[in-house]
Deep mutational scan, measured.
Amino acid sequence: VIAMPSVRKYAREKGVDIRLVQGTGKNGRVLKEDIDAFLAGGA
Rank of each mutant, 00 (worst) to 15 (best):
A37L: 12
Y10W: 03
K26Q: 12
E33G: 11
V16W: 01
A37N: 14
G41R: 13
A40D: 11
K9L: 09
A11Y: 02
V7S: 03
A11M: 01
I18S: 01
T24Q: 05
N27L: 09
K14R: 11
A3N: 05
A40R: 13
L39N: 05
Q22H: 14
R19I: 07
M4E: 15
K26H: 13
I35V: 10
N27F: 12
L20N: 09
S6Y: 08
K9E: 15
L39G: 04
A43Y: 13
Q22R: 14
L20D: 09
M4Q: 14
E13M: 14
L39Y: 06
K14I: 06
G23P: 09
G28L: 04
Y10A: 07
G42H: 14
V7H: 02
R12Q: 15
N27C: 12
A37E: 10
Y10K: 06
V1L: 09
A40K: 12
K14Y: 07
D34M: 01
I2G: 07
G41M: 14
K32V: 09
I18M: 06
D34Y: 01
G15E: 06
Q22E: 10
G15I: 03
D17V: 04
D34V: 00
K26N: 10
K26R: 13
I18V: 05
D36E: 06
S6V: 08
G28H: 07
F38W: 12
I18W: 06
V16K: 01
V16C: 06
I2Y: 03
A40N: 13
R29N: 09
E13R: 11
I2W: 02
K26S: 10
F38V: 08
S6K: 10
E33R: 15
V30A: 03
K14V: 11
I35R: 00
R19A: 12
L20K: 11
F38M: 06
D34H: 01
G23I: 02
T24N: 05
A43M: 13
I18R: 01
Y10M: 04
N27Y: 11
G23E: 02
G41K: 14
K26E: 14
V21S: 01
R19V: 07
K14M: 15
A43C: 11
D36F: 03
A11E: 01
R19C: 08
A3V: 07
L20P: 01
A43V: 14
K32G: 04
G41A: 14
T24W: 03
R12G: 10
K32Y: 09
D34Q: 01
V7R: 01
Q22N: 11
P5Y: 04
V7P: 03
N27M: 10
L20W: 09
V21I: 12
G28P: 02
L20E: 12
T24A: 03
V21L: 07
A3C: 09
A11R: 00
K26T: 12
V1M: 08
K9S: 08
G41D: 13
V7Y: 02
I2N: 11
G23F: 02
F38T: 04
R12K: 15
G42S: 14
G42Y: 13
L31M: 12
I35F: 00
G15S: 06
R8L: 14
A37Q: 11
Q22W: 09
K9A: 12
E33T: 11
D36Q: 04
V16A: 04
L31K: 08
I2S: 09
V30N: 00
I18D: 01
N27V: 05
S6F: 07
M4F: 15
G42T: 13
G42L: 11
N27Q: 10
V7N: 03
G23V: 03
I18F: 03
L20Y: 11
R29E: 15
A3I: 09
E33V: 12
G28D: 04
G23K: 02
D17W: 04
K14T: 07
I18T: 03
V1W: 04
V16N: 00
A40Q: 14
R29W: 10
T24Y: 03
R29L: 12
G41E: 13
A11C: 07
D36V: 05
G25W: 01
Q22F: 10
D36S: 03
A43F: 14
F38Y: 15
V21K: 00
A3K: 05
K9D: 15
E13Y: 09
L39F: 07
G41L: 14
V16Q: 01
I18H: 02
A3G: 05
G42D: 13
R8G: 04
Q22L: 13
T24D: 02
K32R: 13
D17M: 04
E13W: 08
S6G: 12
R8W: 12
